[in-house]
Amino acid sequence: MWVGRAKVPGMKLAVEAEGLVKQYQGRSGTVDAVRGVDLSVEAGEVFGFLGPNGAGKSTTIKMLTTLMSITAGTARVADLDVTAEPQAVRRRIGVALQEAGLDARQTGRELLILQARLFGASKHDARARATELLELVDLVEAGDRRIKGYSGGMKRRLDLASALVHEPDVLFLDEPTTGLDPASRLTVWDEVRRINELGTTVFLTTQYLEEADQLCDRIAIIDDGLIVREGTPRRLKEDLRERHGLDAEPTLDDVFLDATGRTRERAAGEVQEVTV
């Protein structure tokens, strides 16, 4: 049985970024999409990357997954330098971006077989892996139907499966449940937990704070291209309660609003590292 590749032995940090910057030329001049992000995600974690629309979440994830060039700073994923060894990084990561990146004219099975072949599987092994993954994401019955007839939830699950064909070390999920109904969202959560239990580090962006609370070991909040909070959901909430002298336990929504909204004065670029 073909296995995409072995996990990196002894890998401690799945993602490591220092001073990550992304600038691009817009019509009105230079746009600073990401202004100096530092991140470290331990192997085996589910790491949540939160932020309002346009904060720099997707840009950061695109830089980490080799899809976008890095203007300044460094990034390592699965112990590999993203800029220097992009092909090696691609072999070790799985990516499911905001829009489920699928070819609607193919069947689910064809798409998975193609993806496995591109990661080096033989025809026979690619077929076997596709069947295995269709079972994993509960799409066996729909596997031989064209993707254009799939519901939003089915597309998301298939996208997730296609990111797993080679058993990646690090799985990047960019807003994996956006636009899904509550039942489909719960299914995706279950999949993410199951994948993580198998040893894959999960780096996910989301706008749903409940999702982050349920799934993530640690989170970072980005706003205006800078990390403004980082820590475990529990510690971030405790920190907020202590700082504001609240009686009730704040929610992650409160933490998010505090970090990105106007509920308190926030110094641009201020990072509060909260440790357990």
Partner: peptide
């Protein structure tokens, strides 16, 4: 269509 639908990025993120 691949670019607009996100599949092109999927392929670019693979070691192709």
């Amino acid at each position: 269509e691949d670019i607009e639908g996100g599949y092109f990025d999927k392929l670019r993120a693979a070691p192709v």
